Structures are given as C-alpha cells and as structure tokens.
Amino acid sequence: VSQSGFAVFALEELDFERVKFQFGGRLETQKYRPAFSERGMGEGEDHDHDHVEDDLEEEGHGHEEEEEHHHEPADAIQRTLTGASVSAGVHADTWKDGVFVMNYAHSYRAPALEELYNFGPHAGTLSFEIGDPRLEAETGNGMDFSLRHNAGRVRGEFNVFYYDFDNFIFPFAPGEVEGGLPVIEFTQLDARFVGTEAGLDVAIHPNLWLNLGADFVDAQETVRNTPLPRIPPLRGKIGVDVDYGGFRLTPQLILASQQDQTFTGETRTPGYAVVNLKASYTIARQHLVHQFAVNVFNIGDRLYRNHSSYIKDLAPEIGRGVRFTYTMRFF
C-alpha cells in the first residue's frame, strides 16, 4: 500500500499579560493506494459494524472458547480522506503562582494504514490482525480544564477532561482464532472519554521532595455503554526525590486498582503495587558531564499484568531487573 499525506497548520497567540488566548487549526489529507485487491466487495456496499454491536449484547462480556475461523481479506480499495482540526484555549493567571487553563478541541483523524489494510499475524501483539478498508474518519470534540500551582516549595496540577468521539477506531477481539492466533479486528463505534489526573510535589527539605500523583479515565462506547478495551484502571504513585551534590536517589511506589470494567471478550486485571528505584551520580567537568546511573525495576519481583497490554493474558510485566548506564555529554 502506498500512502501519501499533506497537511497545513496555523497557530496564533494573543497575550494580554495576565490572560493569553491560543488558537490552532490544521487541514490534512491522506491518500492510500493499494497495489492490488484480494477480492471484490463492491464499491457501493454499506459499511457497518453490526457484528460488534451483536457481540456487545452477549452476557458476561466474554467467550467460553475461541473458535478457529478462516477469514478472507477484504477488497483493498483506494481511500482519500480529508478533514480539519481546530482548537482554542485560554491561559489565565489566578492567585499568586497559580494559573487556570481551559482548552476546546475539535479533532479529525484519518484511519491509519494498519487499521485499514492489515491482514495477517502481528509478532508484537501475538495476534492475527484484520483491518477494515471502509473505516470512516474519526472525529471528536473535547474540553479539558487545568489548575496549576508552581511556587518555591510546592508544585501541583489538577486536570479534568471530557472527549466525545464519532466513529472512534479501536481493536476488537471477536473471540476467534486464525492460524493459531487470536483474531483482532479494527472497528469503530461512537465513544466518550472522561478522566482526571493530579500531581503534587512538596519540598520537605531543599534536598528532599515528596512526589504524589494519580490518574483515572472512564471510557465507554455509547451504543450499549460498554467499557472500551485496554483502558487503564485507577492508578497512583508515591515517591521521594533525594538530590545532594551530584548524587540523586528516586524510589517510587506504583499502585493500580483492579480493572473489571471490560469490553466484550476482555478479561479483568488484578490490581498491583510495584516498587522501582533510580539512582545516579553526576560528575561535571568543563564542557563535559559524566553520569553513572542504575535503575532497579520491580524490586519485590511482583507478578503483575498491565491492562493496557495487548498480550497481558500471555505475558506479565517485567520482573525484578537491574539496568546500569553510563552517559557522557559534551557541551
């Protein structure tokens, strides 16, 4: 498949000291030209996703057993997609060292090449991917709000967002097997995302900072209000940052709740708590910096799985591991 694209964009900012207004726009076109077609489907054939909606009505959001199927590739038709994205935002000073930020965005995204034309095994996800050459462009409207504070000993940020999508494109597992691999089909449905994230850094001492953070997202398709696949659960982190001279030490505890809000055919993922550690020592010389660092992953050697991973049911996340690095920088 030959792909070519063209885009133009414009940005503008109006600065009134305590208040800034920002505007952006982008116009793009994408062209896909397959070298040949596998079989004919007919240019006038309706494009729908009834098979996805039917699966959403099945109880339990799962399949007792994956069945071997033989799929035929769809006709690799030529596609030309053109659309525009626009955004507008305001950045306003509030209290001392604090700002309020609000953004609106209308987005346009043409289907990616793999979402349209993939047909075959994918080594990275250990699946048999099937694209849909008749996918429509994905469009969305969204708002996000942010409160930020940046003072000498306290830094914090709190964000909330809402996005509504038409024809949201995502990979869907119908519970079938092709060539011994689970089938993944790219499909689309209307969807909405709501979420929040927060971070707080507090200086306990000039050389010691406490770092806190959390994030949560709720994403559903709006046909049956079913959760979308591979959406991360509520997560949090607690860490400290010790910085003295050229030495830096950063232990961190990562927490995640269980994810039982699952899509059709998707399995729940248990929660976990993982401890990581980073340490480094920097030696500065004139025009040269030496840095020795060590990263220790999953110190407790905890067996856990990432709900966002395509292969979470086959492979857990990394166990205990250590990485040493040496970096030399010239300036």
Rank of each mutant, 00 (worst) to 15 (best):
L14G: 07
F16N: 01
E17R: 10
E17I: 08
R18H: 06
R18Y: 00
V19D: 05
V19P: 09
V19E: 02
V19M: 02
K20E: 10
F21S: 02
F21C: 01
F21A: 01
F23Y: 13
G24A: 01
G25W: 00
G25R: 00
L27W: 13
E28G: 11
T29K: 14
R33D: 15
R33W: 12
R33Q: 15
P34C: 06
A35I: 09
F36H: 12
E38S: 14
E38H: 15
R39V: 10
M41N: 13
M41G: 14
G42K: 09
G44I: 08
E45N: 04
E45T: 09
H47G: 02
H49M: 07
H51C: 04
H51A: 07
V52L: 00
E53F: 15
E53Q: 14
D55Q: 02
E59S: 13
H61C: 11
G62S: 13
H63S: 12
H63A: 08
E64C: 10
E66K: 15
E72V: 10
P73F: 06
P73C: 00
A74T: 03
R79I: 00
T80A: 14
T80D: 12
L81S: 05
G83K: 05
G83M: 02
G89V: 01
G89D: 07
W95I: 09
W95Q: 11
K96F: 13
D97W: 11
V99R: 15
F100N: 02
Y104D: 04
Y104L: 09
Y104A: 06
H106S: 08
H106D: 09
Y108D: 06
R109W: 01
R109Y: 06
A110M: 05
A110I: 07
E114Q: 08
E115P: 03
E115A: 05
L116Y: 00
L116K: 02
Y117T: 04
Y117V: 04
Y117W: 04
P121S: 10
H122F: 04
A123L: 11
L126E: 15
S127R: 04
S127Y: 00
E129V: 09
I130P: 09
R134C: 01
L135A: 03
A137T: 04
G140P: 08
M143H: 13
D144P: 03
D144G: 10
S146M: 13
R148D: 12
R148F: 07
H149V: 01
N150A: 14
